[in-house]
């Protein structure tokens, strides 16, 4: 019986991810869905009055932006605690005495929260879909789901940022840093354009560097377009998905590099 167990690298990641998802559920993180559904129901009922017949675009704008906002909250505040809470509560001790490497743990925790966000985002997407069908905006559903997918990608990047900061900093500081990255990541392309329009060569260089180092979160903004029922071409979706995967891989490698060298006092 002693060596009857057969596992590979991915099994343990999967087991840890599953547990991280269970943790999120038990910590009642998905309760935010209730608030979201109430918000959307209220919007679907009352927006017709307030927007003079523009409820379709308003529900799309409101719903999609709320998905991002709620998701960003979860990604930041749960993300920074993913690893640091386990260190602080000493739950890592037993884990790392098992055949689990630091990288497996880190990736597993990351995927667990990503799965949580996927479920959260998907349920909210369904909520927006129902609200849209109610107000007669069924023709925009394809665009809405593209935008939901983009929001999910953005949240994955944000989670990776949070976990990277928390691999070497305190949760409070990590949350603050991650929030800054969220802000800068959205502004970097605007800032770069701004600098290109009227800045000096130095400013152009600085903002150009920031633009490429920081996650370019404005890439994921497809929410205003979704309200028009627009669709991106397949190449754009492929490029943005590729960008996301590569960026997350880089972040997790950095996080793993730091985390693998940490002493758990």
């Amino acid at each position: 019986m002693r060596r009857s167990s057969n596992t590979n690298y991915l099994t343990q990641i999967f087991v840890i991810a599953k547990n991280a998802f269970r943790e999120a559920v038990r910590d009642r993180i998905l309760y935010n869905l209730v608030i979201f559904v109430l918000l959307l129901t209220g919007a679907a009922i009352f927006l017709g009055e307030l927007t003079a017949g523009q409820e379709v675009r308003t529900i799309i704008n409101l719903g999609l932006n709320a998905i991002l906002l709620f998701g960003a909250f979860i990604a930041i505040f749960v993300g920074v605690g993913l690893v640091s809470k386990e260190i602080e509560k000493r739950t890592v001790y037993a884990i790392f005495a098992k055949p689990v490497t630091r990288s497996q743990f880190l990736v597993g925790k990351y995927l667990g929260l990503s799965l949580t966000l996927l479920v959260n985002t998907a349920v909210m997407g369904i909520g927006v879909t129902l609200a849209l069908l109610y107000v007669g905006g069924g023709d925009r559903l394809a665009s809405v789901w593209v935008a939901v997918f983009f929001v999910f990608l953005e949240l994955c990047v944000l989670t990776a940022v949070a976990i990277t900061f928390s691999s070497f900093s305190t949760p409070a500081l990590s949350a603050l840093f991650t929030f800054f990255i969220f802000v800068i990541g959205h502004f970097s392309s605007s800032l770069r354009e701004f600098a290109a329009a009227l800045g000096s060569a130095g400013a152009k260089a600085v903002f150009g560097t920031i633009y490429y180092i920081m996650p370019n979160l404005s890439l994921y903004g497809f929410r205003t377009q979704a309200a028009y029922g627009l669709l991106p071409d397949a190449a754009a979706v492929a490029a943005i998905t590729g960008y996301t995967i590569v960026y997350i891989a880089i972040l997790l490698s950095i996080a793993n590099f730091i985390f693998s060298r940490r002493n758990f006092k």
Partner: peptide
């Protein structure tokens, strides 16, 4: 880490996931 398949460890004042 593969050696960990064959060892066990109970930390001092152990603490585990309290939601489990």
């Amino acid at each position: 880490t593969s050696m960990h398949r064959e060892i066990g460890y109970c930390p001092e004042n152990p603490y585990f996931y309290d939601y489990l």
